[in-house]
């Protein structure tokens, strides 16, 4: 059998030199974006926590409040 034609047509070209720089730059941009997203997520959860606390204290659901909040009116 003659030589495998699939092997003969295999490309031996190499990617252009600047492609690595392009990829690494894009990776750095993605990392930056992910870092911002992490910041946003932590701020977001804090914001939700704050909101929950405010709503909770004003709605009179006293079950989870400390005893000091349950003093009877004079």
């Amino acid at each position: 059998m003659s030589e495998n034609p699939f092997k003969i047509i295999r490309s031996t070209d190499l990617p252009p030199e600047h492609l690595k720089q392009d990829v690494v730059s894009s990776v750095k941009r993605i990392m930056l974006l992910m870092r911002f997203m992490q910041l946003f997520m932590s701020d977001y959860s804090m914001a939700v926590f704050e909101k929950f606390r405010l709503v909770g204290s004003g709605n009179g659901t006293s079950a989870n409040r400390p005893d000091t909040d349950l003093k009877p009116d004079p």
Binding site: S11, D13, L14, P15, K20, V24, M31
Partner: peptide, 24 residues
């Protein structure tokens, strides 16, 4: 630890294979 330079090493090892596969 995400690291662009470390990823660059993986790129160096596989770029020719990926590129040639894409050309194919």
């Amino acid at each position: 630890v995400m690291d662009a330079d470390l990823f660059g090493l993986l790129y160096d090892r596989y770029t020719a294979r990926v590129y040639q596969k894409c050309i194919g």
